[in-house]
Amino acid sequence: MKKAQEHTAPKKYGMVIDLDKCTGCGACMVACMAENNIPFREDETDKNLSTTWLRVYKLTNGKKFPDADVCYLPRPCMHCEGHHGHSPCVSVCPATATDYSNETGIVSQIYTRCFGCRYCMAACPYHVRYFNWWDPVWPEGMEKMLNPNVSVRTRGVVEKCSFCFHRYQIAMEKAHYEGRKELAEDEYQTACTQACPANAIVFGDLNNPDHAVYRLKTHPDAFRLLERLGTNPKVYYITSREWVRRQGDNYLENEGKIAAKAH
């Protein structure tokens, strides 16, 4: 009976990213672009117009040599849970074009439903939502290399990281076919996780004690971005560097050192 209850327990997919391991190589970004048919343009100078479901930020401690330090911070969608699924973007979408799944904890984006009001972009403090300012144009021949499991998006709609949800669907189909209801940890992994050469990204069910993320999220050096806002994100970061943890959120001057948060 207990086993059966475990089977029906809702999943909460999330990530733990070790910032001390990340070298900023950008392989995760490339993998994400290729996996999710993310459009790009010839001129990507203006990063505010680029679409990068997963973006690597460069953080600096602002000090001069020899104390200068740099940290690379990969930022996928945080798949915020908010309070009981009241994530910042889902609650504001007027056309129910984005949804919080209580089954997986994933915030979805329904491209064919979105009419491009961009309220969700205004709501997201992490800038994970991207608007298609142009129709996607692929270099000749490249359209043949698009991922058939991911729909391309038209001009005028918002898109964002889906935690490679199509991979979850494929894995679940296979599991159902084999008479299983549960996925093993390695059956569903995001493209960025698999591409990271430093194994800095770990992905799995935050509710499942058998998954690595379950343990890692309680690491004494773990933190989440902008936790104070109440977004309740599902992406955790680990770093031993206090200055990096401090840049993970906003603090008043009189607030002391950032205590490691255990969850």
Partner: peptide, 26 residues
């Protein structure tokens, strides 16, 4: 003019999310 897909503008009424302030506005 402001919405990215003007032809889908009616979605805000048809697929209304009653919890969104923008729905109430529309």
């Amino acid at each position: 003019i402001d919405i990215g897909q003007p032809l889908r503008g009616w979605f805000i009424f048809w697929h209304a999310n009653v919890h969104s302030m923008l729905t109430e506005v529309a």
